[in-house]
Design a protein around this nucleic acid. Structure first.
Lengths: 205, 205
DNA sequence: TTGCTTACTAAACACCGTTCAGTACTTTTG
DNA sequence: CAAAAGTACTGAACGGTGTTTAGTAAGCAA
């Protein structure tokens, strides 16, 4: 049946058209300022049409959330060119932060906004993107343990601790809680805090 | 002039009436689900009246944000009953996290939501609440340095690092990014990650 | 008592996410 | 080939949202 295949293809293209317009608008104006109506206008369809391809706005945000995870996972792969596991780890931390800095809207969607998690929850699915990315971290931490760089034996707990530390100042920064430091000091203090963290775990973990 | 004083007092009472209703509704239903109209209904005034006492919704949220900081600062004071500075520090970390657990909506307002920071920004004021609370942390970290518990000499950078770590998993938890662990494991892994962090900085900072 | 100020509100403005009845077009069937 | 069935899409509405403004009514001062 060539027709049903073509229809399938057209349906998929329409999903991509919507997602593309949504991505463009969201990245240009931020998630807060873009409505379904704006997206519909951009692709010259009625707002109702979007609901034939995505359940609701959260569903659309979840699709972008997935895309963003592909992007971050791609960046994470690059740290594996390094041989020293501890270097891999620090580089991964820097990648996480750099990604947030360069793609603040995407990072927000991935790790701060509740919308995409609500989408997952209501279709009671699990957060595979998060699991996979966290898995990469655990893997590297395990290597550090195996090589005797870290004394602590539970790679998952150690990974959680490391993720928290790196996520912490990233999230504080993005949500403007570091604006109490003036702009120059802000970058400096974040850089120094990160370095201090890596040194500290190198010695004490 | 007794009349202008009474008017002043009445104005202040009205602000409290609004704030009280807002607090009640926000804590009951979450910030997302409460509108200015809901608050107006609760106090039996028209929505427009609220705008005579608060500039906009962000302004109202900022007032609650301030209240919440008073509450947290109060909790932080309690850690000073301990004599050992390192114990003060770990207890402060636990207080931060416990506060978030017990008052998720308030914590969100204090450290995650952008609304109250936008209110600050548009009247270009600075975040004194944040400064003060961070100051308490720096003070304790300085004590740890003075007593030779930490080797690193910059208390502000060390404090930033510690805040990040504690904030990190708190924020990840509140924004449902730890739901990938099942409920029992979730609490366990957070507890263990926190303990691991304290042990690590004890040895390595 | 008149005029002025204050406190308040009804109604509107310009949006929002979402749903649904109905239309126009395409495909399948007899 | 015509009729029936199915698909893709939309206009218009529903029930909200934050916010502004013109206008009213009461309190106070002269």
């Amino acid at each position: 049946m060539g027709i049903t295949e073509r229809k399938e293809r057209e349906k998929e293209e329409m999903r991509k058209l919507i997602l593309g317009a949504a991505r463009k608008l969201f990245l240009e104006n931020g998630f807060e300022k873009v409505s379904i109506r704006n997206i519909a206008d951009a692709i010259e369809y009625s707002p109702a049409t979007i609901y034939l391809y995505y359940k609701d706005k959260n569903d659309l945000l979840y699709a972008l959330h997935q895309e963003a995870f592909h992007k971050l996972t791609g960046e994470f792969q690059k740290v594996f060119v390094r041989n020293d596991p501890f270097e891999r780890l620090t580089e991964m931390g820097r990648t996480y932060f750099r990604f947030a800095f360069e793609n603040p809207e995407l990072f927000d969607l991935m790790f701060i906004m509740t919308a995409p998690m609500d989408a997952l929850e209501c279709r009671d699915d699990i957060w595979n993107e998060g699991r996979t990315a966290f898995g990469l971290l655990v893997q590297i931490v395990q290597e550090c343990i195996d090589k005797g760089i870290f004394q602590h034996k539970d790679a998952e707990v150690a990974s959680m601790m490391i993720w928290s530390a790196v996520h912490g100042y990233t999230a504080l920064f993005l949500r403007k809680r570091l604006d109490m430091f003036d702009e120059n000091r802000r970058k400096e203090i974040m850089e120094e805090a990160f370095t201090l963290f890596t040194e500290t775990i190198r010695r004490g973990l």
